[in-house]
């Protein structure tokens, strides 16, 4: 592995830490009123007005098989630039809190966990150990958006919301 560096932005979903490469993050927004789009799956929270364009908002927690997001003081929208079927699309994800931007050497990234992991490894680029010994999962966000699958391993899914999200599609 070569010794390149990359900048990531970390955020919290429930109890866990995830990170996305900053090149895919356009913006961090305070929570605004979301217009729900009827008949859409539950994890698709609706749309907001982002400087004159319509931005879809995803509850990424439900996508990960966690209970739906609760709006709190720290809840923010991360505006991302994702590639779906070869097309670049802007979308916002709701996260419980944004933590920090940090720089890492690519050779410090650990391979995604195989068997026994909570999340499907195809959605995880790798794992990084932070200074405070916390592990951060580096997400392949394009893959997360390109599928209707849940990110969490099916076997560990026990929340009804997750099942709902699965069946809606």
């Amino acid at each position: 592995m070569d010794n390149e560096t990359g900048s990531y932005i970390s955020f919290v979903l429930g109890e866990e830490y995830f990170a996305i490469n900053v090149t895919q993050v356009l913006n961090i927004l305070q929570l605004v009123q979301i217009t729900k789009v009827p008949t859409a799956p539950d994890y698709m929270k609706g749309v907001i007005n982002l400087r004159g364009t319509v931005l879809p908002i995803i509850d990424i927690r439900m996508k990960f098989g966690m209970p739906p997001i609760e709006y709190k003081r720290d809840t923010v929208i991360l505006v991302l630039n994702v590639e779906i079927d070869g097309e670049t699309v802007n979308a916002g994800i709701l996260v419980d809190a944004v933590k920090e931007v940090f720089e890492i050497n690519t050779d410090e990234i650990l391979p995604p966990p195989g068997i026994g992991s909570k999340y499907k490894s195809k959605f995880i680029d790798g794992i990084y150990k932070m200074n405070d010994d916390k592990f951060v999962m580096l997400l392949d966000i394009d893959k997360v958006f390109s599928t209707d699958e849940l990110v969490m391993m099916a076997a560990t899914t026990d929340t009804t919301e997750a099942k709902q999200a699965e069946t809606v599609e």
Binding site: V37, T39, A40, T53, V54, P56, I84, V89, N90
Partner: peptide, 10 residues
């Protein structure tokens, strides 16, 4: 304004 690709089924 278009709703976008993610809402193409709606």
């Amino acid at each position: 304004k278009p709703l976008g690709k993610l809402y193409r089924s709606q």
